[in-house]
Amino acid sequence: MTSSAVAPVSTSSAGASPASPAAPPAGAPLRRSRNRLGWLGSEPVLWVLGLLLVPVVWHLYSMVNDDKLIVGPLDVARAFGDLTASGELFTAAQSSGTVLVTGLVAGAIPGLVVGILVGRFRLLDLVVDPYINAAFATPLVAIVPILIVALGFGVQAKIVIVAMFVFFPVAISTATGVREVPRDLVELARSFCAREYTVWRDVLIPGALPYIVTGFRLAIGRALIAVVVAEFSTSVTGLGFMILRYSRRFRMAEGLVPVVLLMIVGFVLFWALKRVEKRLSVWRATP
């Protein structure tokens, strides 16, 4: 994504001499070689340029536009500094973070267990699978008001909402992964007199791990959505509260600060998950 976004700019700066499009040798990678871009073509440089592209365009747009409601990245950065210094951002983040983490755990663990059970036992799968898929397809936001009636406006309601968003992707991915684990390996474990839980620990979970990680990745994205949804629709607290409060007063820069923070949190969580996955998959042949 980043490199393709930058490509037009760099080709125009380096492309005075039209390089003759020689046919690539057989077996060469399908991606175009980046040699023609010179130093601009090195991966870190492209990465940084890509990262700067959107903020720069945003900044230029906010400069030429007189509308006071259109704030630039520098305004947001300044507001970020102010809200951090006052401690307001930290307090709000703490409240949202608690909901996020608790909800993630409360959704992921049952999701993992149900996913393994459904993937492991075919008859259970037959009965439960339609429900899980129906629930996954349902826009869960739609039942949030109903949940609030049942659970009230407190922090439990928020946690349940997040857990609900997290549960289904984890359960579905885990079940798919467990179904993919060769039955031969389960039988091997049985032949060594393994108990059911050691089969889970030694065979099913490691075997399904790539799918479980995919489920977690989906779950993290959905959990971040769920936190904000929960904070908007129950008692207004945390980062969601900040967004509402400042945007209602037309202070757009301040209103965008929690959004940026949520983005950073999502980015960091994805990155951490990727690292964990890499460490856990040393046993797979790299293609």
Binding site: E187, D202, W283
Partner: peptide
């Protein structure tokens, strides 16, 4: 078919 655990 050997049946080694590939992650071990």
């Amino acid at each position: 078919n050997f049946r080694l655990l590939p992650w071990r």
